[in-house]
Nucleic acid binder design. Structure first.
Lengths: 239, 239
DNA sequence: GCGATTTAGATACGCCGTATCGATCAGCTG
DNA sequence: CAGCTGATCGATACGGCGTATCTAAATCGC
């Protein structure tokens, strides 16, 4: 990987100027857009340099005039999605604001489930990642919290949101890869789980029921909202 | 990918019987152990079929007598780690139990930071993944909660833990890839962030201070514990 | 227009996962 | 013991990956 300027250089390197007067040229924006379309259509594994170049009607190595490495492209894609889920306006009430941020983030993630395959290796420090920080801090502007307090609140809400979404997306990814809908997935996994609990090693899980382990989308909405309210309640009680 | 039996067939396919009387043979256990060593030493990208085979003194295609595809190997590795972080005993107090589970999970993840690169695409339904469910349900055994309630509690705590850990590991991965310690990473990223906030677009972030955004390990311990208590407080208040 | 810089792409390299098939080994049976 | 069957191992090859390197063409600025 690149030397120590990597943290900054991706985001500070300007996208190249384009001239409308000459031959059609590839731009960084076009590369990111093509990559996003591929990822949304076929998942992150479809985003190869060759596939992106083909989609743009150009040759693979030409992309390297605009991005330094493929990893940078993935970072740019994630920052684009981060931009998509920013709020237009931050509500005045801190709970309402954090709830709106978390909810909108989750919705955006569900529109781009491939982010689960990329997010485990990246820090969100592109411009839109920082805009997310800005809006989150704005949400807490009216609270008397010191820096550590604000940091703890934002970290907790982000952690909860991220973790919940990642788990949902992972399950979804596995299901879709197997070509199953929610019911099909349950039907496929249940016999294995039932066999496991039949060993007697899992009394609590048996009492709970394997069908309760294999939840579908509506349950995810409810559990996400419930857990978020618990966390916000806990934060509120500490203020 | 495999047809619909994938959910079950990895975990129900027996590891092959080994005979001590014949030529030394590869086993599934040995493959997983070799892969874990590689991942711990060099990260998940070092776990290629060729590297694992070389570590075992055998040839790559020989591994396929024991695992069906590389993806299965990654699942087996993750389940091994899930086993490592199981509690010896579940405390009787539900808060203490959930705290212990979350804390131990986080500690285990830090010993194997490569899991962040794999976790975004997997459902933890191996035997140890189900043992984790079992111990979590045991933690709630004394509470009067219906299935949906238990499910919500466990989902929330797991989501929070997972999200927090993944964010930490992603940051750590990025830093180590750049060959920096925590201070070096801050020093590298701060000028870029300062340049961003100097645009005037980020007043809250500027007031907060970019050095507060670039936290190190000790802060993570505190924020994890604080957020977890908030969540547990919120759950307690709902009981 | 000219020189400097940037962009695009041909070519090749090392690496990846795994399909396919043949050789060898292990276990069982007559 | 010999033969048969199934399991294990590995050679070989394929199609794919990211990207280093270098040349040619295009663009930019004076």
């Amino acid at each position: 990987m690149a030397p120590p300027d990597h943290a900054a250089s991706l985001w500070t390197r300007p996208a190249l100027p384009t001239s409308e007067a000459a031959r059609p040229r590839v731009t960084r924006e076009a590369i990111v857009a093509a990559a996003l379309e591929l990822a949304d259509a076929e998942g992150l594994q479809a985003v190869s340099i060759r596939r992106v170049a083909a989609k743009l009607g150009t040759r693979p190595m030409g992309l390297y005039s605009h991005i330094e490495r493929k990893d940078d492209l993935i970072d740019l894609m994630l920052d684009a999605i981060a931009g998509e889920v920013l709020l237009d306006e931050v509500p005045g009430d801190w709970r309402e604001a954090l709830r709106a941020i978390a909810t909108r983030t989750r919705e955006g993630a569900h529109r781009h489930p491939w982010i689960a395959e990329a997010a485990g290796e990246r820090a969100m420090i592109g411009p839109n990642g920082i805009r997310h920080v800005e809006q989150s801090l704005a949400a807490l502007a009216g609270l008397r919290l010191d820096r550590a307090g604000k940091r703890a609140v934002l970290t907790a809400v982000d952690a909860y949101t991220f973790g919940h979404v990642m788990t949902e997306l992972a399950r979804r990814s596995l299901r879709e890869t197997a070509g199953l809908d929610a019911k099909g997935w349950s039907d496929a996994a249940a016999p294995y789980l039932e066999q496991l609990v039949a060993t007697g090693e899992f009394p609590q899980t048996q009492a709970f029921g394997v069908e309760s382990l294999l939840a579908d989308q509506e349950d995810d909405d409810a559990t996400f909202a419930t857990g978020l309210e618990w966390l916000l309640d806990g934060i509120a009680a500490s203020l």
